[in-house]
């Protein structure tokens, strides 16, 4: 009997730290979203959009503040000067040749950017998934030489773009290394996979990510971050019609 008690006590003592420091799925996703959200950010990058006819390259500069404000300016030749200003509930588009400001709301936010597999929502949408999904840890795996949790997220609101997500989150830096995005019925819509991790402005982050829309055959978009500066001072005017139409 004593031996049983001693064994139980030792087992509890061994496991106690693990329980004490166990992290919930909500907290993992919250930390991952926090790691991908900056008070302010200025970045530039390229989208390599590949389909059966080859690869189109669109380059862009972007500025973001918090979760809901962003300005994207396309710098590649075919779209040069086109800009998208995203606020909480609306998108303003600016076409320089027509000198025209177009304000859009509602479902227009789900459009793919320049024929890519990335929607404006993917690019600029709010990242507070912990309050929008029920989250559970379903597995642990190793990707890109990094240990990660595998989490399943099920939406508890209809306002999110994907009703179900499975994400692989790096245990060290809370980077989402892989993601699968499903319809409510379980059909895979989109997947995402980090191809390269690097450091920019002192932050370890995904610098090359491939996104494939499963509804399109032989199509994917590789998003390459060329430059990133975070938590810098950004003027209010950047997220204004004045800057958009300049």
């Amino acid at each position: 009997m004593n031996r049983k008690l001693i064994f139980t006590a030792i087992t509890i003592l061994i496991l106690l730290p693990a329980f004490a420091f166990a992290i919930s799925g909500d907290e993992i996703v919250r930390r991952a979203d926090a790691a991908a959200t900056f008070d302010t950010a200025e970045s530039s990058g390229e989208m390599h959009i590949t389909d059966r006819f080859g690869t189109k390259i669109s380059s862009f500069d972007s500025w973001a503040r918090g979760e809901n404000e962003s300005l994207i300016e396309f710098t590649s030749r075919a779209e040069r000067g086109q800009k998208v200003l995203r606020t909480e509930n609306e998108i303003y588009l600016y076409y320089p040749d027509a000198e025209e400001l177009i304000r859009m709301q509602g479902s227009a936010l789900r459009q793919g950017m320049l024929g890519s597999d990335i929607s404006y929502e993917d690019m600029t949408g709010g990242k507070d998934r912990a309050s929008q999904y029920s989250i559970e840890i379903t597995d642990e795996q190793n990707l890109l030489g990094r240990d990660c949790w595998v989490l399943t997220l099920r939406a508890n609101t209809r306002t999110v773009p994907y009703p179900k997500e499975i994400v692989w989150i790096d245990k060290q830096d809370y980077i989402v290394l892989k993601g699968e995005y499903y319809t409510k019925s379980g059909r895979l819509l989109k997947d995402m996979e980090v191809l390269e991790i690097g450091e920019m402005d002192g932050i370890t982050m995904a610098v090359e990510t491939r996104i494939s829309d499963k509804m399109k055959s032989n199509s994917n978009t590789v998003l390459i971050m060329k430059d990133l500066k975070v938590d810098i001072k950004l003027d209010d005017e950047i997220f204004s019609l004045e800057e958009l139409s300049w």
């Binding site: 479902s107 227009a108 789900r110 793919g112 509804m215």
Partner: peptide, 11 residues
């Protein structure tokens, strides 16, 4: 003007 997203790629 209204857009209906039929699925993740068609609208």
């Amino acid at each position: 003007f209204h857009m209906v997203q039929l699925n993740s790629i068609s609208s």
